[in-house]
């Protein structure tokens, strides 16, 4: 026989358990939907299963003399010193967006050589380099 107190406790614990599972499911599902994968230009070239039309990030260095501007947008090339990709972007660029400095572009891939960005990220610190880019450069230096 279960006393009322024990019954209440079981009810309380199971409801907490159920709520947590529902919450966890809810969180993980939307997490899965909103993940942005980070790739280098080389990875984009090599990988077969790269998704087009899905939000992602590309990072590398802004190639020297590659920035061009017209009325509508800014175009520039991101390089990891092995492969390159052309980026088109309309919007404001951060103040540390400079040729031959690290940059991360967020947006969609339209084909393997062309990326339409809707956000450009550069860092607050002029000496700072995103760890991903540092890794790429170290890899290519070998």
């Amino acid at each position: 026989m279960l006393t009322k107190k024990v019954k209440n406790r079981i009810l309380f614990l199971t409801s907490i358990f159920l709520i947590s599972i529902v919450a966890a499911f809810f969180i993980l599902r939307s997490l899965n939907k909103n993940i942005l994968y980070f790739s280098s230009p080389t990875e984009i070239k090599q990988r077969e299963d790269i998704p087009f039309g899905k939000d992602m990030r590309v990072g590398g260095m802004v190639k020297k003399d590659s920035i061009t501007v017209n009325k509508k947008d800014i175009q520039f090339i991101i390089t990891d010193f092995e492969n390159e990709i052309l980026i088109s972007y309309s919007g404001t660029v951060p103040s540390l967006f400079v040729e031959e400095k690290g940059v991360v572009a967020e947006g969609k891939l339209s084909d393997k050589n062309f990326f339409i960005a809707d956000r450009i990220l550069a860092k607050h610190d002029e000496n700072y380099m995103p760890p991903e880019i540092k890794e790429i450069i170290q890899k290519n230096a070998k």
Binding site: S30, K33, N34, I35, L36, Y37, F38, D55, R57
Partner: peptide
């Protein structure tokens, strides 16, 4: 070793 970032929509939705 997969590099990802979680975008603002995640937080907004949840």
């Amino acid at each position: 070793g997969v590099k990802i970032s979680v975008g603002p929509p995640f937080y907004n939705i949840v």
